[in-house]
């Protein structure tokens, strides 16, 4: 009788777990269709990664049910996890491929690192807020990401031991771009910096290094077109 109850209990738990996973998997599919493809995200690798990474596992417990909504969410410490579309847009912008090595400054929730890790060989990510970094490190390990390397420390210095990088994403943007990061970016490499107040990413700054010169391009995830009024 006791055994039967245990089996029944385990089956129930397994059923509930599978049901929840199916629900989240369905939500992810919907997210990709309605939030990404319709807004012009085309890169297959990016879309596949967005379909695969379990965003709900990387947000704080209180935000799990909103994980796949079309908006940024608070993750504590004055930080946010970006809206799925912005993450996809940034990922597509650097055109990640297998074999690449990418540096991320500002691990935050770990979601951007996880998306990149689905596509490229190695992701190096640095988080300055100790508790935030440890939380992301644990979650990413629990999710089985072996190609993500998390360092707790000052992102200003990048990660010199593993430089140069094919691309750098600076999610914790500051008023300046640290010179060490520019040095650690490969020739022809790309750096992406989302700029905006918390809960927004009003534009992305794409920095390109070519022939020793540095050029920037401001990209707009959301295109603001002023009204043209007849008056």
């Amino acid at each position: 009788m006791k055994k039967a109850a245990t089996v029944l209990w385990c089956s129930l738990l397994f059923f509930l777990h599978s049901y929840a996973q199916d629900t989240y998997s369905e939500k992810r599919k919907q997210m990709v269709e309605s939030q990404l493809i319709t807004r012009g995200i085309k890169d297959k690798a990016t879309l596949n990664a967005m379909r695969t990474v379990e965003r709900h596992q990387l947000v704080p417990g209180t935000q799990t049910r909103y994980a796949y909504e079309d908006r940024p969410l608070p993750i504590g410490y004055g930080q946010t996890i970006s809206q799925p579309y912005i993450v996809a847009y940034m990922t597509e912008t650097i055109r990640p491929e297998a074999g690449m090595k990418i540096l991320e400054i500002g691990t935050g929730s770990g979601y951007q690192a996880a998306i990149l890790a689905e596509i490229v060989d190695r992701v190096y990510t640095v988080e300055i807020v100790d508790s935030l970094g440890r939380r992301a490190q644990k979650k990413l390990r629990d999710l089985g990401y072996k190609n993500i390397h998390v360092k707790l420390g000052d992102g200003y210095f990048g990660w010199e031991e593993h430089a140069p990088f094919d691309a750098i994403i600076v999610t914790a943007a500051t008023e300046y771009i640290p010179p060490p990061l520019m040095e650690q970016l490969k020739e022809d490499g790309k750096m992406v910096i989302p700029v905006g107040a918390p809960f927004t990413a009003q534009y992305l700054m794409l920095v390109k290094k070519k022939n020793g010169k540095i050029k920037t391009q401001k990209l707009l995830p959301v295109r603001f077109v002023p009204f043209t009024r007849s008056d």
């Binding site: 000052d154 300046y176 540095i214």
Partner: peptide, 18 residues
Amino acid sequence: SPALRYAPGLSLAYPGDI
């Protein structure tokens, strides 16, 4: 803080340490 730096809108041509 040893991680606090100030360089508002610094040029990408800046060669030194902040």
